[in-house]
């Protein structure tokens, strides 16, 4: 299965990402791009129409988390340990937001990711993001396995 297909499969099971209408735009060995369409439901400031940071956090948490498929041979559920977002400027209302993420260090237990959220080009980021993920081992997305309760969210 191609990296892009695995990324699409991963995104398709995340219910909240489907509610927000997120789609995989591109995925290969160099990283992952996910699109978050603009909608009035994700506005945080009703005066300006600017999207709430929470929707951008959801985009980037998902993007960083799913970018692990660009580097891992098999599906692994990787709970987020921590995530940090620095906002460069507010998103322009009415325009989709793209998230790009890559893994810059993979160890047997931890995956370090970084990325940007942008609208026009990756060189003009709305936000810079770093996220750290924990590896839970292979097959942890297998629906037949008993639930695991260790680790963080997502």
């Amino acid at each position: 299965m191609s990296i892009e297909q695995r990324a699409r499969n991963f995104l398709s099971v995340l219910r909240h990402c489907q509610v927000l209408g997120m789609t995989v735009e591109q995925a290969d060995e160099s990283g992952l791009v996910i699109k978050l369409p603009y909608s009035e439901f994700i506005v945080g400031n009703p005066v300006t129409g600017v999207v709430h940071g929470g929707a951008i956090t959801t985009l980037m948490d998902s993007c960083c988390g799913i970018s692990t498929v660009c580097y891992l041979d098999e599906f692994e559920i990787c709970p987020t340990l921590d995530l940090r977002i620095d906002y460069m400027h507010p998103a322009e209302p009415g325009v989709p937001i793209f998230g790009f993420a890559e893994c810059y260090r993979v160890t047997p237990t931890i995956i370090f990711t970084r990325g940007v959220a942008y609208q026009n080009s990756r060189e003009e980021p709305l936000a810079h993001v770093v996220g750290t993920f924990m590896r839970m081992g292979k097959g942890s997305l297998d629906l037949n396995r008993p639930p695991r309760t260790a680790g963080g969210a997502a």
Binding site: R15, H16, C17, S62, I77, P147, R148, T149, A154
Partner: peptide
């Protein structure tokens, strides 16, 4: 988010 646990999406 994760449908297996199921878990609240971290975002």
């Amino acid at each position: 988010g994760n449908p297996v646990l199921p878990a609240l999406h971290g975002g």
